[in-house]
Design a protein around this nucleic acid. Structure first.
Lengths: 167, 167
DNA sequence: GAGCCCCTTGAAGTCCGCTTGAAGTCCACG
DNA sequence: CGTGGACTTCAAGCGGACTTCAAGGGGCTC
């Protein structure tokens, strides 16, 4: 798995889709799908087969990371478009993208911490009182901010109608 | 609209699906869907309309929270089955469920922290070296452990073809 | 008891992120 | 030069989580 020198890439550092799949951990079908979405690009051999540069590994890694941060593939594509296609990105280029992720990650961590705290609270209180259960109130409050706060699962929490009820 | 005391619930604390939707932040269609999956249950009026107890709010909140922690609705149902249907759960009952979540949440937080650290590292290093880029290597390592660690987004990393590369 | 909004069902549709299948082509090894 | 495994395309399928639609019925207020 390591880039063992000597076993080497098939030819001048270009990867077949199979090799890319193996190294990226994605199925070839997924890689083709990514390509169809414009997330990655390949050159073609005379016979029409895809050949990927090693930089594609970086792009794929980027996409996977983006997904973990809650981005859709389309959003990932947009972010990727801000990075150079085949060149290694400069520190500055990274900076723009990475810092925007930082906040996204921080947000998610904070969200999870909050959930964790609520859960802990629930254990403590035994949820004896519906009106005081944090979990319960979390949902009830969510009602106030529109259709749901499932940002981990779907896109975009905001956009809700005005708050409905004060407890 | 608000749960203003005095305006009160329509009748002995039973909620219509619309009221439940409003308070839980979910669409009525989603609630019916949840019911079809056995996540929540309703009594019926003589005319066949659903009436939910207030405890259903708790169940819905639970499901939403479960989703945030990366559970599928089916997994949420399983977890819910361990809690009493209409009764307020005891501290012990919560304990079992909540602690299992704790670890799940902690895992996710750790995962995000790791990603964040990698990203920071990338900024620092400017990703000058592919072979030293943490992000890149993250993907490469993922290849060793099968098709992906996207637990936040889809279910179950396993089930793919067996790991391709030797660790 | 009229009116109006909320409710009912079941089937079908949507979106996302892929996977699978069929039928055919390429290319590296021996 | 032959062969078999890896590759090609395109279309269709899948699973999860819902939403939408059509046609009809309920229930609370005035």
């Amino acid at each position: 798995m390591t880039a063992a020198p000597g076993h080497g890439p098939t030819r001048h550092d270009l990867l077949t889709i199979g090799q890319l799949a193996e190294r990226s951990g994605l199925a070839t079908s997924a890689l083709r799908y990514y390509e169809s979405l414009g997330l990655i690009h390949a050159t073609r051999t005379a016979g029409g087969q895809r050949r990927y540069t090693r930089a594609t590994l970086r792009r794929v890694a980027f996409v996977r990371a983006a997904q973990r941060v809650g981005l859709s593939l389309d959003e990932a594509r947009v972010a990727l478009d801000r990075l150079p296609e085949h060149r290694v990105p400069t520190g500055t280029e990274w900076d723009a993208v990475a810092t925007s992720w930082q906040s996204r990650i921080d947000e998610q961590i904070a969200e999870l911490e909050r959930l964790k705290a609520k859960l802990t609270g629930c254990i403590g209180c035994g949820c004896l009182s519906l009106s005081r259960c944090a979990l319960y109130n979390a949902a009830d409050r969510a009602a106030a901010s529109g259709p749901g706060a499932r940002y981990l699962l779907t896109r975009d929490p905001g956009t809700g109608p005005e708050p409905v009820g004060a407890p």
